[in-house]
Write a protein that binds this DNA or RNA. Structure first.
Lengths: 230, 230
DNA sequence: GGATGTGAAGTAGTTCACAGCC
DNA sequence: GGCTGTGAACTACTTCACATCC
């Protein structure tokens, strides 16, 4: 039913980042027993303009109905499809401090298709504990095969853990450490940085962007790469 | 010394989101006893092109030296200045589960200028505990005055807590709950969503964007607003 | 020589506005 | 009537390329 690989032109980066938002809204609507929606409603809830919503969604193939709008279940599965959420991916999480536990415990972290296959911590006190149905192991002892690695370790350990992940053939990494790490070409690292959110919010607060400046808040979060420093 | 308010044209959104990245890199360099850097080096570590780095930084006033580059301390304080990090802001955090604790415990969450003034949880078991030097209180009993509110509560409580924050006159909110909330015009909400990072990573993984597609990974994280649903 | 800062050119993303379909 | 989907216009961002200054 769901063939993820109908070769359309790749989604633009901004579109790619709005799709999960639309999906969340659509899921919420389903929860409220709604059946359809339209670009204007999605616009109000997402902050994108109706035209942008339509442009984004039209990139997923023909899924709206002129005159009435979008069927929610169809919309949700089309976005799943576009993002590849109908495929199964194995995820390991390294670092079982508060953040690591918060992540694996959060129902929304493991999205459709993502399967938690390993949890690690270098602290012997934590090793052996059962978290999210898995036993915590020492990452230095080797990692279970996976496609995605998540790092929730202190900044000081970030580079070392990155190297471990790369050595374990895991080339897609989400880094929650406030640390720029280096990695070989062919590896992807996404940085997630809480303090950045605060910084941006403070800026908007001072400059009146966001609340004022047009009514609708529009924000983009930038996260960096870093191929091969010296 | 630091006058944040030299009225330049407001920073563009993409620039605004790269500045913290440059700053992090600069801080790391200072830690390694370096004194200056240049746009090419910042480019390598940030993933932006050298031209983009220069354009971004030139917006902060004249701070580079032709022929040699940027002095790190000057660069850091210029970014602080532009983002308003030299001003003091009061922050409250609602929700002291794993995530809330991880946040207030993380040294990088409270950036320069941000001051944690209140921590809250609706669980009586948690109330009274000392976390990050503060006693946890029941948010329903009222919140201490602050400029910024951070929500680390379950999705089901997100709307209620948003209303509390707004009632307490806190109009800048960071929402870590996977829940789209509604709020009055004049309030800013930034959504931070972990699962979104995974979704985007999965997309890049499938489509070969990022690792391939040009060598350097470039990613943008989009976070939504939502003014007034029905 | 070498790196910044910036007009000018190029590219990407957004918004308009309307034809097409329900 | 209403709402989608999309060429065309517009706006914003990025990149080039070079004059400028150390």
């Amino acid at each position: 039913m769901s063939s993820a690989m109908n070769r359309r032109q790749p989604l633009s980066e901004p579109t790619l980042h709005r799709l999960p938002v639309y999906q969340r809204i659509a899921r919420e609507m389903v929860r409220r027993n709604l059946v359809t929606t339209d670009s204007k409603t999605l616009s109000r809830h997402s902050g994108a303009t109706p035209a942008t919503v339509r442009r984004d969604l039209s990139g997923l193939g023909t899924l709206g109905t002129r005159g009435s709008g979008y069927e929610l279940t169809r919309l949700i599965s089309a976005i799943d499809d576009a993002l590849g959420l109908n495929r199964v991916y194995d995820v390991v999480v390294v670092g079982m401090g508060n953040l690591g536990r918060a992540l694996v415990g959060s129902s929304n972290f493991l999205i459709r298709g993502a399967r938690l296959v390993g949890v690690y911590d270098s602290d012997p006190q934590v090793q052996g504990m059962e978290i999210a149905g898995l036993t915590v192991h020492d990452p230095a002892q080797g990692l279970v095969p996976a496609q995605i690695g998540v790092m929730c370790v202190p900044a000081a350990a970030a580079q070392e853990v990155t190297d471990m992940l790369v050595a374990a053939n895991i080339h897609a990494i989400v880094n929650f450490s406030p640390q720029v790490v280096t990695y070989p070409v062919g590896t992807t690292v996404r940085y997630v940085d809480f303090s950045m959110e605060l910084q941006i919010l403070v800026y908007h607060l001072i400059n009146g962007t966001g609340p004022f400046g047009g009514g609708v808040l529009r924000t983009l979060g930038f996260t960096p790469p870093s191929p091969r420093p010296s």
